[in-house]
Design a protein around this nucleic acid. Structure first.
Lengths: 263, 263
DNA sequence: CGTCGCCTTGATGAACATCAAGGAAAGTGG
DNA sequence: CCACTTTCCTTGATGTTCATCAAGGCGACG
């Protein structure tokens, strides 16, 4: 790793000491619910603010829950600023981190089939959300079924994502999982117009490890290993990705080689 | 295991040699799409046969694909008879079995977000399906948005199931996974009014292993181990569950102990 | 009756978890 | 502002579950 890069990271660290490098709020136009939300507002599609059903509860502090497993399900949520960890607790008390949610991303679709939330959601940062009462959303959707199309699309995407995650967890080894994780986070930051080479990871090493079904120590070792190989440049939560190509190689995500089963 | 039980299994084996013990067709009233389908038919809810959009293509033979990863997405499918394995192939060629589908169960919701199927579906038995052209379903849903509610519920359930599966794959060890698998299959057979103590597993040991992210040999050993402990009585594809309580214990699925994270 | 695919069982090995100890950063209370 | 604690992270040593390797069995099928 070059001195310049180290310096760049150092200065980033100094500048952003206790201050996030992430923009404070995402634009509505790159939100999962953009179409839905703007329709609710009755405007033509650029901004969803100001409709009658979207609520903006006070921001959550780091460590506060948006909802808990077992809570009554009443709302859909979209992250506006900050980030959320979704996790599931089993009968024996073990936890599984299911996903992280960043600005513009919708959560709690998994609970619509029941009266209760099936998972818990906790803020990793100071986090604000848009909150949509599901019954009202449903009423709107009944009047404008095209809105339902949009929600349905998001649900399908969620299922497809889960499938990919299962593949990763089931078939890949530690290095591949970790590389895939970094690329996924970078891609999602990029979606939100952040600099995707300069990540600020809002979750702890433990969260990453649990998400990837690995031990904390394994993740720690992988951070060290990738840094030593010049793939990353890490400084606690600040991670610069120096070699995307190599990361893609490790993650086995070269797009060219999808072999369709023949016959 | 008692001689009587062994005899019972033996006779089952003889009687059903080359003949499934499963009923040939599920009733529409326990189908995932019961409400939707019967609404399409315009009747009051007991039978969905005879509506104008549900198609019944010729049955698939064991080993034939219903659809493949990359195929154009055009239909939703519900299994009528037989069973389907859903799986995902990664860029490097490794496969991950995602789920098995039995009569009454809906598949291919994961692909609605894209033009193409994201997964492959292959028949494990001689299998017939109901096929619903998605564009027409959508049109109907636009006229009767309550139908969309139903579909949306199913999508949510699918996501919740995936979450539970992730927990199982990530946090449980081999024995627990296998016990949970058996209980899940038994539950789903029960839903379909089969005898849930007497399972006929339509999938190979390899499929089970891959689904649970274990090696084939591990599954083989677990079949032997559980049989030796009197939990199961196995004869190739025929599996009698002798001790549900013990199985639930191993799977850590005692319902009483869900500890809600406090504070 | 012989071949083939699938399954079983045992022996060995490896990837990753667990255990253990120390260090750096962040929070706490004086 | 500075000790003090606490939490999180890192790194090394050891251990264990499960994968892999290998060989043989058994039913299915021609």
């Amino acid at each position: 790793m070059s001195v310049a890069q180290l310096r760049e990271l150092d200065s980033a660290d100094k500048i952003t000491n206790h201050v996030s490098i992430l923009p404070r709020q995402i634009s509505c136009k790159s939100c999962d619910l953009q179409k839905l939300c703007s329709s609710l507002a009755g405007d033509t599609g650029l901004s969803g603010t100001g409709n009658t059903i979207t609520e903006h509860p006070r921001p959550l502090h780091r460590g506060e829950h948006l909802f808990r497993q077992g809570d009554l399900f009443r709302h859909l949520y979209v992250v506006r600023t900050g980030s959320i960890k979704l996790y599931l607790t089993s009968y024996d008390g073990s936890e599984q981190t299911l996903n992280f949610y960043f600005p513009g991303e919708l959560l709690s679709l998994d609970s619509i089939a029941s009266q209760q939330h099936k998972t818990s959601a906790i803020a990793l940062d100071t986090t604000s959300v848009c909150r949509l009462p599901f019954e009202q959303v449903k009423r709107f959707c009944h009047q404008q079924p095209e809105l339902y199309d949009q929600l349905f699309l998001l649900a399908g995407r969620e299922i497809a994502n889960e499938h990919n995650m299962t593949l990763t967890l089931g078939q890949k080894q530690a290095e591949e999982k970790f590389a895939a994780f970094l690329l996924d986070i970078a891609r999602r930051y990029k979606n939100n117009q952040y600099d995707h080479r300069q990540l600020e990871l809002c979750m702890s090493r433990h969260d990453i490890a649990n998400y990837l079904c690995l031990a904390d120590e394994t993740i720690s070792r992988l951070f060290s290993k990738f840094s030593a190989q010049g793939i990353l440049n890490t400084n606690r939560k600040f991670v610069a990705i120096l070699d995307f190509a190599r990361l893609r190689e490790i993650a086995n995500m070269d797009q060219g080689r999808l072999q369709q089963a023949s016959n």
